[in-house]
Design a protein around this nucleic acid. Structure first.
Lengths: 248, 248
DNA sequence: ATCTTAAAAGTTACATTGACCTTAAAGCCG
DNA sequence: CGGCTTTAAGGTCAATGTAACTTTTAAGAT
């Protein structure tokens, strides 16, 4: 079925990876952005990412670009491929499709300056979705879809713990859910669910005193990757999200 | 950060789409396969798919290849991009990455012969996973991951109805779940859940008499895309699946 | 000692679930 | 016809899960 006519029509494309790295900072969801050093979109904020090299795995390219552009070591993050963007018009340089990755990170300090990217820093997600900050290419779309994916991942998986620096308290974990989902949770019911969920939290036996108040028990991540039973947002919220990732 | 050195190292790749189309037939899960007409892997069974053309959207390429190779009109299926495969060694022709799509289909008759592909037909998924049938490229991997995706989609979305030809009965819908998940469900409890779930089923008021037994009420798909509350597999099963789609 | 604060644990009414049972509506058979 | 078989549909009930709320606990501060 592949004849010489079609052979001429194959798109010769270049492939990039882009990374959406979220963190929780000051009770706000932040995303890791760089400032582009080159045309197109020179000086614009953008998701970290770049070209996949000859003979390089997609996952490897994602790790490398993250390291090069932001100094972040992605090997300890739960970096997950979540979607590929291939609109023929999405890059003014020509046909460039990008494989998007998502990860949740503890609030790491970002080594600025010096390295590849002109700047890399955490930026509040809301500032981007508000339109206060415009991003290069179709990165706002990618960010929006990554956020929706992250929100739903919190329901069915244990990755929320990836936001926390070990060891962490139940309250810290709850704040992650609250910030990503964008609404408050009942502390008591939240505790009951996450402590009951098999393999989510491993108690250390240690405690940490906050500035004031009763000391909180400290936990580490358990072995489970899937949360059962899941920790669902209310059905109202789920209905509102109502994503239809299908073709028209 | 993108300098002339890196510019030389950009992978020049070709991009294909591959489609995993499932259906339920004779109480078995089937996948739509073609027989390759060309090297590499000439005469091997493979997932339908092919090169993305210049200026073509990924979704458009998926629809076109499905039509060309199997005669199936994908515009009425819920075709969803689920993962991109980019192992540098995955295609002997060189660097070819593929964007994989997933859809659930009613049991359509496949127009054989004549067209682009030498043959296209439904094949039991088990025969492939057993190793009885080898597939070209990394298509077994793609199939396996598509199956896991489909299984989990049945839990949280209403796409199971896409397997059924409208109008359909609750028993037909239940058989879809049983075949995809691979275990029996309690008919009574299943009915209660799917009829209660808001926006899943729309009663037609009509009935259809089976060969024997009480006539079953007929339904059409409702408007909801997300299932709330979700229809979960038992937690044992969820634990067993335990996928870790992260990097090492 | 008492107050304040946040963590942790308990209470209650209610909804959902899984396993099982009963009734309903057809065709079939004598 | 009347009873049998078959599948659909609906009901029961104990166990579990949930949301909203209250109470107890363990620290530092006054």
């Amino acid at each position: 079925m592949i004849n010489k006519t079609e052979r001429r029509e194959h798109a010769q494309v270049e492939v990039t990876v882009d990374l959406v790295i979220f963190t929780v900072r000051d009770d706000q969801l932040h995303v890791l952005l760089i400032e582009r050093g080159q045309e197109p979109f020179a000086d614009w904020p953008a998701l970290p990412g770049g070209y996949v090299r000859v003979g390089e795995h997609l996952d490897g390219a994602a790790l490398r670009e993250l390291q090069e552009e932001t100094g972040v070591d992605g090997s300890r993050l739960h970096l997950e491929q979540f979607r590929t963007y291939g609109d023929p018009e999405r890059d003014p340089r020509g046909r460039v499709i990008t494989v998007a990755y998502l990860a949740l990170s503890p609030d790491l300090p970002i080594a600025r300056a010096g390295t590849d990217a002109r700047a890399a820093d955490w930026v509040p997600v809301e500032a981007v979705l508000d339109g206060q900050i415009a991003l290069a290419f179709d990165h706002v779309l990618i960010l929006r879809e990554a956020l929706e994916r992250a929100r739903s991942q919190l329901e069915y998986t244990t990755i929320a713990a990836a936001f926390c620096t070990e060891p962490f308290t139940v309250a810290e974990l709850r704040r992650v859910y609250e910030v990503v989902w964008g609404f408050k949770l009942d502390p008591s019911n939240f505790r009951r669910k996450v402590t009951r969920a098999h393999g989510f939290l491993r108690p250390t036996g240690e405690h940490r005193s906050p500035e004031i108040g009763r000391p909180a028990a400290l936990y580490r991540c358990g072995a489970a990757r899937l949360l059962s039973p899941p920790l669902l947002r209310s059905s109202d919220v789920a209905d509102a999200q109502f994503t239809t990732p299908a073709l028209r």
